[in-house]
Computed example of a mutant assay.
Amino acid sequence: MACPWAGEREPHGGPDAQGPARFDFSSNGNAAGPLRSVARAVRCADRSRYPDPGYNALRERLAAAHDVDPARVVIAGSASEFVHRITHGLALRGRARRALVPEPGYQEYRDAAALDGLAVSASAAAAWAAPHGGDLLWLTEPASPSGATAIGALGAGIARARRAGAVVVIDLAYQPLRLDGQALPAEVDDAWQLWSPNKACGMTGVRGAYAIAPRGTEASAAALRARAPSWVTGVDGVALLEAFAGAQAQDELARSLARLRRWRSALAALLKAAGWQTREAASVTPFFMARSPAPIDFAALRARGIKLRDTTSMGAPGWVRVSAQPPLALAALAEAIGRPAASLRTGARVAGDSQ
């Protein structure tokens, strides 16, 4: 079978071959971070030793934070690593023959399915299409690149898929960053929950994630733990996950969300004033989709230290994903797209907005 990647991998947000962008609107990491308590824990991690290969204390801490049995917790090297591990495991056992993936959406779901020879159904409505036994249903809540939420339909969708015999995985990478405060419905307990809090921590360079298996599927969780490479995440990832589960990190996150709301409003106002089409009203996250009134010269922007996330590889050609950034970055973007910095009225610096 041909590799789904023709040469180079599809681009991601964040650093590229040119290194980090000074003004990076392409990354979904918390631009008001890093969370200080998490950064301190990572700095203090003992890198002279291996972590516990079973991650027992970490799984107990995460289980307590989610009020679940530790036997349901699976540690992962990253969200992407888990996407491939669960897809491969289900394909090998004959539990998955088709992947239902959102479009626009994260390319990794489709890539993992293609590598294991699964059929792929990708559409905006794939999440709520009639699933069948043998389906691997991927949901992202809130969604990327749009930041939109389907939380009102999530519980019913999970229940319908489970009755049909499908395996449901909800990617919750952006749940900690949601700006509307909506909690997840109880039905998520019947789906795989994939959490990768490095984005919320503002520390995307620290790799580490975890999944919570559906209730009653502890054997499946154990099987996926057994399929992991030894020491699938290092001590810095362990430190990040442990610290993020603590009350101090959650307090710091809540304060950062207030700042991100202001920055997102300023970004949307800037783009609208420049004639861009924006979809921030549909987003419950610090990022949203936008379309320029003219073709974007990505190379010219990159030369000015500015990076936007082209969403073509995510199934939304002609659009970009942009994330809330500090006032200095907004001023640079305003200059680059021909708007005076004075137009950033809603982005004027306020107390605490020193970044």
Rank of each mutant, 00 (worst) to 15 (best):
G234A: 15
D236C: 06
R227N: 13
M203F: 04
I212A: 00
R215H: 09
S220P: 05
G205C: 10
T204P: 15
S230D: 07
R227F: 01
A209L: 11
V232M: 06
R207L: 12
A209K: 13
S230M: 12
A226E: 11
V235M: 13
A222R: 13
I212M: 08
A226T: 04
T204Q: 11
A228W: 02
T204M: 13
A209D: 15
A213H: 02
A213R: 08
Y210L: 02
L224H: 07
A228D: 03
D236K: 10
W231F: 14
V232F: 03
L224R: 01
V238F: 09
G237N: 03
A228L: 01
G205V: 04
G216Y: 10
T233E: 12
A222S: 09
W231G: 04
A228C: 08
R207Q: 11
V235R: 14
T204G: 10
A228T: 00
A228H: 05
A223S: 12
V238I: 11
G202E: 04
R225W: 08
G205E: 15
I212S: 06
R207W: 15
P214M: 08
A228I: 03
A228F: 03
V232I: 15
R215P: 08
T204E: 15
A213M: 00
A226C: 07
G205L: 12
A213Y: 00
R207N: 11
V235T: 08
A222P: 02
V235L: 07
I212T: 04
G205A: 13
A209N: 14
E218I: 09
I212C: 01
E218T: 06
S220N: 13
A226V: 04
A213N: 05
P214G: 09
G237V: 07
G208D: 05
T217H: 10
A219L: 09
G208T: 06
G237K: 02
P214C: 03
A213I: 05
A211V: 08
G216P: 12
G234N: 15
A213L: 09
A223C: 05
G237A: 12
A211T: 05
V238Q: 06
A213C: 07
T233V: 14
G237E: 08
V206W: 12
V235P: 14
R225Q: 05
V232Y: 12
V232K: 03
M203D: 00
G216W: 13
S220R: 11
